[in-house]
Amino acid sequence: MNRTRTNDRRRSGEAPRRSRSAGRPQNSGRRPAAAPQGGEFALPKTITPALPAVETFAELDLPARMLAALGDQGVSVPFPIQAATLPNSLAGRDVLGRGRTGSGKTLAFGLALLARTAGKRAEPRRPLGLVLVPTRELAQQVTDALGPYARAVGLRSATVVGGMSIGRQAGALRSGAEIVVATPGRLKDLIDRGDCALGDVTITVLDEADQMTDMGFMPQVTALLDQVQPDGQRMLFSATLDRNVDRLVRRYLTDPVVHSVDPSAGAVTTMEHHVLHVHDEDKQRATVEIAARDGRVIMFLDTKHRVDRLVKQLLKSGVRAAGLHGGKSQPQRTRTLAQFKDGQVTALVATNVAARGIHVDNLDLVVNVDPPGDHKDYLHRGGRTARAGESGSVVT
């Protein structure tokens, strides 16, 4: 159904699947994918020609039930990153995808992961596919986005994140889950407890790899990648590619298909950027006035204390506001996000914890009440708006 025979690969110009040798040292055969040049990241050159992009999902080697589920979800035309990478990832190629947040990365890796796992059954505690993400919010978003397609092909999934019951997550793994979506720290905890083993994982995805390295997860990520099948498929998606991500690419990806969505092709045409110069004594009034506008807005500040203080000020002014930061429990964070998405909350006030992994339809305004510390923070905060071809504004 979704398997491509070796002869078909040869006819299509695609390399045969890598063989798995049980006694082979981990990563021993993985050729570095790229070498840094002049201190900057150098995109790896694809040795094997990439398969051509498709125009519709129907052209892909997807299970019929998954195609039906795409239609049921109203997903008809693939985004560029999906159209370019899916033919190759479905054929077992490693993939390096660079695209700004909101470019459709989740289905780009998710459909291939699910289609290539369909029909298989995981042993207890031994998943077959792994998606590593930096934050709890992104883990839940990926789980929700892939849920209809996993159910369509009868795959079980488990979400493994901090801030939630580790016992319940261990139970889901013991019951058997083909796909695990996890943050690195909690997954390591479950492995250390004996509740999970990665030796059967043949497809591994790193989503938002740049944030994982920025948050200090690099040692945990590499330790986890060293435990999966050494000759399995790897897909790495990232909005930015810096030297830390470069290390992951060179160590773990072999002859990857590279797809880079030019940020200028999306961001400049759909997102407006504004800088407001205000005196300190006017900043609070200006912030409240912006928050009180019609529609939803995400406002970013540097610290949990400043978030809580602004939420109180907005509530006093009659704005339906709520805060989101690392000091909140996971159930609180989940509830706040749900209230923001359904309109009960119109102003979400957050630290950088919300700069990744939050997708809200029709969000047209992001405000940096406190300017971000560096360009990557600016990119990812702003990426909450103007997603999937919609328009939006970023105000600092």
Rank of each mutant, 00 (worst) to 15 (best):
Q330H: 09
R93D: 02
V311M: 09
L310E: 07
T135W: 03
F217C: 06
K283S: 09
E137I: 07
F340P: 01
R126W: 00
R18V: 10
L113V: 12
Q227Y: 11
A350E: 06
L173S: 06
A145W: 03
D192Y: 02
V245P: 05
G232N: 05
R234H: 13
L107N: 00
H359P: 06
R100I: 08
A33W: 03
L114H: 00
Q82G: 02
G167I: 03
D370T: 05
T183L: 11
R174E: 13
V288F: 08
L107Y: 02
R11T: 11
V394A: 05
G39C: 09
R10P: 00
G194F: 12
D144A: 14
P80M: 09
D361N: 13
V257R: 07
A35N: 09
D189R: 08
D342Q: 14
Q332M: 10
P148R: 02
Q169H: 06
Q227R: 15
A177P: 03
K341W: 04
F57N: 02
L155W: 02
A112Q: 01
S76I: 13
P219V: 08
R20C: 06
V258L: 04
R151T: 08
D242E: 14
P63Y: 01
H274S: 07
S21R: 15
S165N: 13
R243Y: 12
L155D: 04
A53P: 12
A172F: 08
P371L: 14
Q330R: 07
T106L: 11
A112K: 04
D61W: 04
G318T: 09
L310Q: 07
P16D: 11
K328R: 15
G383V: 04
V75Q: 12
P263K: 08
L96V: 03
G119L: 00
N88D: 13
N368F: 01
S76E: 15
E40S: 14
R93N: 02
A338E: 15
T222R: 14
A197E: 14
V349M: 07
D246I: 05
T240I: 12
T213Y: 05
R384I: 06
R18T: 09
I81V: 14
I47C: 12
L173Q: 04
H279W: 10
G232E: 07
V161H: 03
H375C: 11
S12Y: 00
G23I: 07
T56W: 03
T213R: 00
T159P: 01
R250W: 01
P184N: 09
H279A: 15
V319H: 03
R100G: 05
A177W: 02
R98M: 08
V297H: 03
A50P: 09
P87W: 03
K316R: 15
A347G: 06
L206D: 04
C196G: 09
A170R: 10
G38E: 13
L198T: 08
R381W: 02
P263N: 12
C196T: 08
V319F: 06
V394T: 05
E59W: 01
G13C: 12
N27W: 15
T135P: 01
D242K: 09
G357V: 06
Y149P: 05
V311E: 10
H375I: 14
L51P: 01
L253Y: 10
Q233H: 08
D61C: 09
R136S: 07
G119W: 00
L173N: 05
G389C: 06
V161G: 00
P80F: 08
A64G: 04
F300I: 07
D302W: 03
G162I: 10
R121D: 08
H277R: 14
R193C: 01
S89F: 02
P184S: 08
